[in-house]
Nucleic acid binder design. Structure first.
Length: 211
DNA sequence: AAAACGGGGGC
DNA sequence: GCCCCAGTTTT
């Protein structure tokens, strides 16, 4: 699988950059919680509004759940998320001196933080080597034939074997954008895909379908 | 293992 | 009008 590095380099030149460029770990964490089962444009809009009003853990801790819920309303799951966001802010302010922990086990203790969210915070917020597997990474890795897996955990383990470590932190952003623009869940745009020649899915569907 | 949370957008 | 979407938590 020497191709993996080549494929990633092609994607890096072709795929648009991930639009959420904050490197503030707390903002990454809260924005990622908001993003769960939510379209990303909506996520950025409401996250920016939220941080404009309550930028620091201490600010969000002191905000009311109703106030938070109102600001993130369009993202859906707003009551649940508002409660989690307030509690996460409180824990970080009171138990971690206002700093998001850069450790997977500590992150997983936070409400609303599962494996995917924790890995995104580590990768994007701290620049650590962590592979965050969401539906895009899972789908695309299987389509390409990099893995043949059923669960995200399994995908994460297998990807760690075949993706060079230097790409771990950015593979999620890259594949999410690739998945949005080209390798969509339904009707992937294989005609214009820059890596179709390396794709198992494309080879097996090359004759039968184009749309 | 399945249900529940949820508004917005694509078709 | 139906179905899916940067998942996590509860049943």
């Amino acid at each position: 699988m020497q191709n993996v590095e080549k494929i990633i380099e092609i994607l890096k030149k072709t795929v648009p950059e991930h639009p959420y460029r904050s490197h503030n770990p707390f903002h990454i964490l809260i924005a990622t919680i908001i993003s769960q089962r939510t379209k990303d444009e909506v996520t950025y809009t409401v996250a920016n509004k939220l941080f404009a009003k309550f930028p620091r853990p201490k600010d969000l801790k002191n905000a009311s759940e109703e106030e938070i819920a109102k600001l993130i309303y369009p993202a859906g799951f707003y009551r649940q998320k508002a409660k989690k966001i307030k509690e996460v802010a409180r824990i970080i302010d009171e138990e971690y001196e206002g700093k998001v922990p850069g450790d997977i086990d500590e992150l997983l203790k936070l409400p609303g933080v599962g494996r995917k969210t924790a890995n995104i915070v580590l990768a994007r917020g701290f620049g650590k080597k962590a592979i965050a597997v969401d539906v895009h990474v899972h789908r695309i890795s299987n389509r390409l034939g990099w893995v043949h897996t059923r669960t995200p955990e399994e995908t994460e383990r297998e990807l760690m074997k075949i993706i060079p470590k230097k790409y771990w932190g950015e593979i999620n952003s890259l594949l999410v954008m690739f998945g949005r623009t080209i390798c969509r869940p339904v009707k992937p745009k294989c005609e214009i895909c820059p890596i179709k020649e390396y794709c198992e899915y494309y080879r097996s569907h090359a004759n039968s379908q184009s749309s």
